[in-house]
């Protein structure tokens, strides 16, 4: 029989929630999660990791991009309960003030943002792009960063920043 989640094996778990274990930025935690909670809402409201941004909430803007098992994903379209056992990296896990990730430094050096709202998603997406290893040229970076909108229009500097880091790692 399928796992009957409403009669969960954990007696202490509130009715209707699903015990879910996630490793977020290296820290493993188990939570009782309502199944309709998106990963985005869990991160922002449950875990107080507000670096990940809610833009459109419909998978159209990329502001909510995080890495799940090193792959970039729109966290607004993932139910957290479906990710039991996953390893999640948010912008907070990539770098911190004083210990910036190379992409964060490159975004600063290239003035790759204005308002900054899309930036955590841009940087997580760029890390996913680097993990995929498919983008080498400017055209390829432009195409494979197309899932992240920037309403300030910092695109050309974003591409410069990403190319910079790809070049350093080549």
């Amino acid at each position: 029989m399928p796992t009957a989640v409403n009669t969960a094996t954990y007696a202490a778990v509130p009715i209707g929630t699903v015990p879910t274990t996630l490793t977020i930025n290296g820290e493993t935690r188990t939570r009782a999660i309502e199944p309709w909670t998106t990963l985005l809402d869990l991160l922002r409201e449950g875990e107080d990791l507000i670096g990940t941004k809610k833009g459109c909430d419909h998978g159209q803007c990329g502001a909510c991009t995080v890495l799940i098992d090193e792959r970039r994903i729109n966290s607004c379209l993932k139910l957290a309960v479906t990710l039991d056992g996953a390893d999640i990296t948010t912008i907070e896990g990539l770098g911190q003030p004083g210990d910036l990730h190379p992409l964060q430094s490159a975004f600063c050096n290239h003035d790759a943002f204005q308002c900054g709202y899309c930036t955590p998603g841009q940087i997580c997406s760029a890390q996913g792009l680097i993990n995929e290893g498919k983008a080498k040229t400017r055209d390829e970076v432009r195409e494979l960063m197309s899932g992240n909108l920037c309403r300030c229009g910092a695109y050309s500097n974003i591409v410069d920043a990403v190319l910079d880091v790809i070049g350093e790692q080549a």
């Binding site: 029989m1 399928p2 796992t3 009957a4 989640v5 409403n6 209707g16 699903v18 199944p35 309709w36 309960v81 479906t82």
Partner: peptide, 19 residues
């Protein structure tokens, strides 16, 4: 989003049964 019951079957046969 509306509230719903959630199930995570372990096999295709279970999924079809639950579906």
């Amino acid at each position: 989003m509306n509230r719903f019951d959630y199930a995570r079957p372990a096999s295709v046969a279970e999924a079809v049964q639950a579906g």
